[in-house]
Simulated scan of single mutants.
Amino acid sequence: MRCPRPSVEKDIRVTPDLILPYDGVQPDFASRPVWCGRGSTVIGAARIGAQAWIGDDAVIRADGQSVTLGERFWLGHRSTVHIATLVRGTQVGDRVTVGRNSVVHACTVGSDVVIEDDVVILDGAEIGDGAVIEAGSTVFPRAQLPGGYAYAGSPARPKQKVNADDVAERAERLRERMGDGPTPPAGDPPEVEPSVFVARTATVRGRVSLGAGSTVLFCCDLNAEAGPIVIGADTNIQDNTVIRTRGEGVVIGRDTTIAHNVRIADSRIGARSLIGIGAAIAPGTLIADDVMLAAGATTDPGQILEAGYLWGGRPARILAPLDAEKRATMIRIVEGYCRHGREYRAAQEALS
């Protein structure tokens, strides 16, 4: 069933701000969520268990594979649950708590798991029952993290043993800290050409230029009130990415992917590049054309990332040359998001 419209007081939000089908499939809620925050978005073949709590600007996106979330799932403000299109879905057990600005991506998470703030869990990872992923950690692709431990770092490694009481206490503390997020100032919808998609739950303010075929996805926040933001043709800005300028502005070249929950300050990012999930781009960074920046990586202010390499780490360093397989993957992602943009624009307009 689709999530029912609220029949209680207006200040109690029990329906996501935006629900969209994907490929004809609507999200399926086992029962009305306990809470749905401002800008919350649920897409496609998502099955959400009873007593869910979905925070402000939280995104659950099942477009191409399924997302299954167990009972009492808690998704914090500006966090994202997504899949690897045509490759792998996401499955999460019961009583899982996710903090703020975290990404749960194409992986399997057991029951009674705590995922703290600013965590990235990548494709094919498996998290056992009763685990804790501490704030700021990155779980690398295909990692297997048994339950009963707290994990930290990038890559996430065992830090200490935890028992059921420890996990429950951490979950409770995380939920108590969540509170209610601030309401961002509303921006006027940007004027865009028909090939551009801007999600209804995205916020776009100031001098923002969007190239033909570009996409700005759900719950992104683009603030160009202090300096311009220029986004090239066919470039995709994925869920919960925040771009904020302080003067010089941000320029992103064409055919580039900015993944989920990226943070970008005044900088230049070249064409045909990929900025990985949860990365942070410091002011003054210059990223050349044909660069892949790994998930969870950061740059130093003023850092220059040379063309033709995979960069990663905190701060980023060269890990390997970009091979033909990585370049082909980057092209496929851009093509896929151009297609997504057309599909989402049609589905969003059908709600009007």
Rank of each mutant, 00 (worst) to 15 (best):
I237C: 01
I237R: 07
Q238E: 07
Q238H: 06
Q238R: 09
D239S: 13
N240S: 15
N240D: 05
T241G: 07
T241E: 01
V242M: 15
V242K: 12
I243P: 00
I243R: 04
R244I: 09
R244A: 08
R244L: 00
R244P: 00
T245P: 01
T245A: 05
G249L: 03
G249R: 11
G249C: 03
V250R: 01
V250G: 01
V251I: 10
V251K: 13
I252L: 05
G253W: 03
G253C: 05
R254P: 08
R254I: 09
R254Y: 05
T256L: 04
T256W: 04
T257M: 13
T257Y: 11
T257E: 06
I258R: 04
A259K: 06
A259H: 15
H260L: 01
H260M: 07
H260F: 11
N261D: 12
N261W: 00
N261P: 00
V262L: 05
R263C: 05
I264D: 08
I264P: 08
A265M: 12
A265S: 15
D266R: 02
D266G: 05
S267H: 04
G270H: 07
A271P: 03
R272H: 15
R272I: 04
R272G: 01
S273K: 14
L274H: 12
G276C: 02
I277M: 14
G278R: 02
G278V: 03
A280I: 08
A280V: 11
A280E: 14
I281G: 02
I281T: 06
A282Q: 09
A282G: 09
A282T: 10
P283D: 07
P283A: 11
G284R: 02
G284A: 10
G284W: 03
L286D: 13
L286W: 07
I287M: 15
I287W: 11
A288W: 08
A288P: 06
D289E: 02
D290E: 07
D290W: 05
V291L: 14
M292A: 07
M292Y: 14
L293E: 09
L293F: 02
G296H: 06
A297E: 00
T298P: 14
T299K: 04
D300M: 11
P301E: 10
Q303P: 03
I304E: 14
I304L: 15
L305W: 14
A307C: 14
A307S: 11
G308E: 10
Y309C: 14
Y309E: 06
Y309D: 08
Y309L: 10
L310K: 05
L310T: 15
L310M: 10
W311L: 10
W311A: 13
G312C: 08
G313A: 10
A316M: 04
A316H: 12
